[in-house]
Amino acid sequence: MISVRNLVKYYGPTLAVNNVSFEIEKGTVVGFLGPNGAGKSTTVRIITCYLSPTSGSVQVENHDVLTDSLEVRKRIGYLPENAPLYLDMNVVDYLKFVQKMRVQESSENGRRIKIVVERCGLGDVLHKNIGELSKGYRQRVGLAQALVHNPDILILDEPTVGLDPNQIIEIRDLIRELGREKTIILCSHILPEVEATCNRVLIINEGKIVADGTPAELQASFEGKTRISIQIKVNVDSFRDHIAQLNGIDRVLSSRPLGENLLEIEIEAVKGFDPRENIFNLCKADNAVLLEMKREETSLEDIFRKLTRKEE
């Protein structure tokens, strides 16, 4: 559906996108993840025909962005970063304007606007000026204008920046719902957002794709050693040594007293091994009371940090 091949983009002498290639299948929700300035927005702007590639090719449903850009733009709904909108227009006039600019058949128009307004929850603010709306509503208007022509492809550049937690959840739910019927590219540097909404993640750093897969695949391939932290009530002084000798424990990272007889210990397990059962049995043997045991898994966040950290 979208195919990007050997895409390169220079801004003057600065290299923004460095030989990026990927394919996006119909119906996937792709999270385009990367730190600020990694080249996400640039790539997206090339797909939406706002910028032209320095070299390489981009095709959307077999239409090339350079030679057939009007056809590409017809198929895409795009919400740029920060949802730039005309602040002096009211919501419904704005949506009608976008619709006219997209030259849709007129009998459908009224119905489409109704659907979009309902979907994006804009019913209460239809006749308000966009300038008077809160950031959350503006973001929704931006989403509505991207949906007004019922595109197959939706490209959203950081749609939840500047929203409060409730609004973020609303927008994410909406994206997930739209993802059932549309192909979506979601640019973000917020990991939970991508984890919550996407079924494929592309991590981009310094203009290059550094990881590509489903969130679960990425987690599996970057799985490190499991970390376990426990809180115990224990009288035996040597408990710390016992646990270090336990089968499957790589090393004890820290151990600090929290109070009388109360101890917090952090340990790292041998790769691919779950030592929780052994720990429990040890506690039983040493008559220690296990108050808390936590296993920390490598999250997408760790992978992201590992991949995008600047090498010093």
Partner: peptide
Amino acid sequence: RLGTIELLLTLPIK
């Protein structure tokens, strides 16, 4: 200045 040019030029118009 507002950035609306990006929305306008990604509509299917020349």
